[in-house]
Each structure stands twice: as C-alpha cells, then as structure tokens.
C-alpha cells in the first residue's frame, strides 16, 4: 500500500472541498450539467489522480502514463476539476464549461482536452475501450495500468457485459474498474428501474476479482486499489458504495439532481455548506 500519512489524507480532504466547489461553480455557470454523478465519483478520481496514477500533466501524452476512462462521461465536471487542478490545462477553462468554442464539452472529448483518454457520453462503451488500452499495454510489455469508472445505471447496457467477458478472458490484471454504486439512475432508484443485484456475484461469475469499498473513504480506497494492483490473472472490479450528490446536503440521494444546475440560491447554499 502506498504509505500515506494522516496529514496527507487531511490534505486530500481539503482538496476535495475545493474541487467540489469547482464542480458546483462550473455547473452553475454553465447553467446545465450533471452534479449528482460528478459528486459521487469525485473522491475516486481524487485518490487516483493525487496518489495512485503515474501521470505527468506537463508530458500528458507520455506513452508510459497510466490511463483513465470515465465511462460515465456525464460526470466529467469532476474530471475536469481534477485535471485543471493537476495542471493539465488552465483553471480558467472551467469558466466555459458547455459554452460555444470551449474545449470543455458537455461530455469528454479526447481531441480537445489534454488528459482525456477517451471520448465518452454514450453510456456502456468505456470498458471496451479500457480493455483495448490494457491489451495495448500488454503488447507493449509495459507495466502501465488502466482505470475505468462505470455508473451503476450504466451497467444495464449489454456492451458492458460483453466487455466484462473480454477482460476476464484475456486476464487483464492491468485493468482496474470502479463501479460508482450510488443506487440512482435518471428515472429513480436502480432497484426500481431494473435491479442489478446480486451485483458482486455477477462480476465474480463473469470472472472478475471483486472488491467492495466505501467510495468516499480515502484510506479504504487506497488500501483496496493496492489489493487490486497485486491481484494477478484477472481484472478487478471495485464496487464503490457512494452517495449521489455527495457533499451537498440537498443534492444527496436525490434523482432530481442527476442532471440539473443549481439556481443562484441553491448555489450560494451549496458553497456555504462546503465552506464549513
């Protein structure tokens, strides 16, 4: 496990507050976007981009970099906030999310944004692309790793399960997937729309090494990612139990906050909560 001190964890938590503000401000200014799924995935992205992944924002096309595919592309404000903070592009780009001529498109575009490894937005396709990247790393004889973040609603897409079989068949142990298990999709609770359970058993039956974790707890996330790295012969699925809208009280666990921007009042309240 990467040795990480209690102070480092505290620093990550401070960073998370700043990035949550960035996400909310970005979506507020854009007057559209997806806060719920961005906030549920943010802590996973923070752990990956600030402690785990081998990346160099100054040399972001380095062949040996680790790759991340945000398969649930609508959560991109979280990734944009992280990439800007890590220096992949200037922070003032965040002011123009979803605006005309802005690189920060409504869904990630690898041809416009440094640090975006795959364009996503049409759900269910990211795991296949991540598999391709993992196969490429193996062909290159490289130790670089591939990460992919899937939505829980997203895995209702059949292609995800095609890709799950492919990753297991090719024993892609250089691939680590996260399932952002926030329990919600657009039309409501997943268990009401189309249930995923038994979920861990499904992935195990598909040949994956499956781990579960609190997707907002940095120490646990670090520990579990470390276990994923050491597991040989199969890809790892980390089922991350998360809260949609995490960090903003009135957004938490509300399907309604999947894809709408806060108004002025809500924005002020959200910032106030994050100041605490």
């Amino acid at each position: 496990m990467p040795v990480i001190s209690a102070t480092a964890i505290e620093e990550l938590k401070l960073k998370a507050k700043k990035l949550r503000k960035d996400v909310i401000s970005m979506i507020y200014r854009a007057a559209s976007g997806h806060p719920g799924g961005a906030l549920s995935a943010l802590d996973i992205l923070i752990v990956l981009y600030y402690t785990v992944m081998n990346i160099d924002p100054k040399n972001y096309l380095d062949i040996e970099r680790d790759r991340l595919v945000l398969s649930k592309g609508h959560a991109c404000p979280a990734l944009y906030a992280v990439l800007a903070d890590r220096g992949f592009f200037p922070s003032d780009w965040l002011d123009f999310l979803r605006k005309i001529d802005s690189p920060l498109q409504g869904h990630p575009d690898m041809r416009r944004i440094p640090g975006i490894e795959m364009s996503t937005g049409s759900l269910g396709q990211g795991l296949s692309a991540a598999n391709g990247m993992a196969l490429a790393a193996r062909l290159d004889g490289s130790r670089r790793r591939v990460y992919v973040i899937l939505g829980d609603g997203e895995i209702q897409e059949g292609q995800v399960w095609e890709a799950a079989m492919t990753a297991a068949h090719y024993r892609l142990d250089n691939l680590t997937a996260f399932l952002d298990y926030n329990g919600l999709q657009i039309d409501g609770w997943i268990r009401d729309v189309k249930s995923l359970e038994p979920l861990a058993e499904k992935w195990r039956a598909f040949g994956w090494h499956v781990l579960e974790v609190d997707g907002h707890d940095y120490t646990s996330l670090l520990e579990i990612i470390d276990r994923a790295h050491f597991h040989k012969g199969a890809p790892t699925m980390i089922i991350a139990h998360t809260v949609k809208g995490k960090g903003i009280s009135f957004m938490e666990n509300q399907a309604d906050w999947h894809g709408r921007a806060p108004n002025k009042e809500e924005y002020v309240q959200a910032l106030a909560e994050l100041e605490k």
Binding site: I63, R67, V69, M110, E117, M118, Q125, G126, L127, S128, A129, A130, N131, G132, M133, A134, L135, A136, A137, L139, D140, Q159, A163, T166
Partner: peptide
C-alpha cells in the same frame, strides 16, 4: 470499442 482503445494506444 476494444479497437478504439488499441488505436488510442498507438496500434
């Protein structure tokens, strides 16, 4: 999709 990932890695 797998082909896209391979292409994104230079293949």
């Amino acid at each position: 999709g797998t082909a896209a990932g391979l292409a994104a890695s230079g293949y």
